[in-house]
Design a protein around this nucleic acid. Structure first.
Length: 524
RNA sequence: GUCCCCUUCGUCUAGCGGUUAGGACUCGGGAUUUUCAUUCCCGCAACAGGGGUUCGAUUCCCCUAGGGGACGCCA
């Protein structure tokens, strides 16, 4: 059987967002599932809007997502070049062929003229189709206009018929070409238009499956006609559902057309983000949702893709109203995320599943970014930092969230009244004695082991010791000591928490809490 | 306006003529965790509406409503 070849063909006229990224993912996954090739092609025939900066950003996003292309920019391949702007001669030659076969013709209508006609039709409530003014120009007329220096485009001579699109996702869809008319395949600047260039490229690059958003379905009959004009066999079509924002509308800047790089900067792993995107319009045969990409590569099939649009539901619209989510800085963007989204849940699952060293390596840049941990301590070999990060990982939906937790371990202790004033454990009569006894034991512990190190097992013993000495047990004992030694009502398992804080910080907190208690409840 | 597509719990979805309409996230309740989180149970929650076809429609057909897309010298 013929090798499957898919492609992703972005135009460098903006950044990559979920819509495009998901299309790239599906192409990539399908190629891998079929043991085929994934090709990247840059469609930069729009001279006005294409930019180098945008190109770099798109490539950057694709690399982060991990879609290794077998052929394309940077890696090359036997069907290059992979930028349309470098394939101009190809388009020109094939266009010449079509013209000589009378399947296409030069058109000298000006943009203004066409615009006027279009507006007239619209005013009458009629659909606009090119009227064919230049369709039957004689060779002499053409030569004359060219000689006179008139600019021209090249139009495809659309035959009157019905074009049938056989689509893997959409099924059989029929189009009447009368509604299409003679469309432009070469622009007056000499560049190929999209519908024409894709066909030439897809054919020459031997693309077997065209997987893209349904938005392109109505372009497909035009492309099929071109395949037929050349006598080329068409690829298999697969038009997958579009992705909509939380407002049920097409992804707009306000509602979710956020650059992929923003999610990277927020601290989502590419693994989690890919997992989430794969679920937008596709489902695994056995219904599993949390899935390493390796399994997606094995299981993915366009035949299991849904026709109905999927919602990219990760933003809290109530909070994000009136905000351009594509523009806000990362720190602010975070506040507009729906914290209980499936994306976050998946992200947390992936963070937990990450191998320890890998996890540390990935999170370190985010740790540095907090500026909370001294630069000198920000390295993979720092045992204490390592322990802290590893203990905290279950709490993280994104790597960026680490900043919420790190201050407690690295910054000077700040008691929060909300944690203790109305707490029954703080109000308890024995709070002070609990704290003092614990403080004494902790200090002794430090004496015997030396340095700042606390050992979880020893702390456990000390807790029991406090209970025995004061005749306290159960919740009052544990919660009282938690509050007294950490100043917090929540957190890691106490012995581990304290060991990670270290002797110095624990004794300091105990003293502070004792002082607070004494100010709050004067002697007597 | 014309053409095309879509419509199952709030969200992602399974389903491809006969199911108590299943799962996941969220939410609610409970158990465990002497804290929060985790984990584990239990629960709430859907076939857009109306006509057909059929012994039987979530599933097939038509209409309506809602949504999306195309109708570019943009891709």
């Amino acid at each position: 059987m013929k090798e499957v070849r898919t492609r992703f063909a972005p135009s460098p006229t903006g950044y990559l967002h979920v819509g495009g990224a998901r299309t790239a993912l599906f192409n990539y996954l399908y190629a891998r599932a079929q043991k085929g090739k994934f090709i990247l092609r840059i469609e930069d025939t729009d001279q006005v809007r294409s930019t180098e900066e945008s190109y770099k950003q798109v490539i950057d996003s694709l690399k982060w997502l991990g879609y290794e292309w077998n052929e394309g920019p940077e890696v090359g391949g036997p069907h290059g070049p992979y930028k349309q702007s470098e394939r101009l001669d190809l388009y020109k030659n094939y266009a010449t062929q079509l013209i000589s076969e009378k399947k296409a013709y030069p058109c000298f209508c000006t943009a203004d003229e066409l615009d006027r006609k279009k507006k007239q039709r619209e005013a009458m409530g009629l659909p606009y189709v090119y009227d064919g003014k230049c369709r039957n120009l004689s060779e002499a007329e053409v030569a004359e206009k060219k000689a006179a220096g008139h600019e021209h485009t090249v139009r495809f001579r659309t035959p009157a018929k019905e074009v049938v699109v056989e689509d893997i996702v959409q099924g059989t869809v029929r189009f009447d070409t009368a509604l299409i008319g003679d469309f432009i395949i070469v622009k007056s600047d000499g560049f190929a238009s999209y519908n024409y260039a894709v066909v030439v490229d897809d054919h020459l690059m031997d693309i077997t499956h065209v997987i893209r958003g349904v938005g392109h379905l109505s372009n497909t009959p035009r492309q099929i006609m071109i395949y037929q004009a050349f006598g080329w066999s068409e690829p298999k079509w697969a038009h997958v559902s579009e992705i909509v924002g939380s407002d049920h509308k097409k992804l707009s800047k306000r509602h979710g057309a956020t650059p992929i790089t923003a999610f990277r900067d927020l601290g989502y792993t590419a693994r989690a983000f890919n997992n989430y995107m794969a679920l937008l319009g596709w489902s695994s045969p056995d219904g599993r949702e949390y899935m390493p990409i390796a399994e997606q590569k094995a299981l993915f099939d366009i035949a299991r893709c849904s026709k109905s649009p999927a919602m990219f539901d990760v933003f809290d619209l109530a909070k994000a109203a009136e905000v351009d989510l594509a523009q806000v800085p990362i720190a602010e963007l975070e506040t507009y995320l729906f914290t209980k989204s499936k994306l976050n849940w998946l992200s947390n699952q992936h963070i937990r599943a990450t191998e320890d060293n890998e996890f540390i390596r990935e999170i370190l840049p985010f740790v540095r970014n907090t500026k909370v941990v001294p630069d000198a301590e920000c390295n993979e070999n720092n045992e204490r930092l390592r322990e802290i990060l590893l203990s905290l990982r279950v709490y993280l939906d994104t790597l960026g969230q680490i900043k919420k937790y790190l201050a407690d371990f690295y910054l000077p202790f700040e008691p929060r009244s909300a944690d203790y004033v109305s707490s029954e454990y703080f109000q308890a009569e024995n709070f002070s004695s609990l704290a003092k006894t614990f403080l004494r034991l902790i200090e002794q512990m430090a004496d015997s082991s030396g340095g700042d190190t606390l050992v979880p097992d020893k702390i456990k013993e000390a807790i029991n010791q406090v209970g025995k000495e004061l005749g306290v047990k159960g919740k009052p004992l544990f919660m009282g000591l938690r509050l007294a030694s950490t100043g917090r009502l929540e957190g890691l398992e106490l012995p581990i928490y304290l060991a990670l804080l270290g002797k110095q910080r624990v004794t300091e907190r105990l003293s502070r809490m004792i002082a607070l208690k004494e100010t709050a409840v004067p002697q007597g």
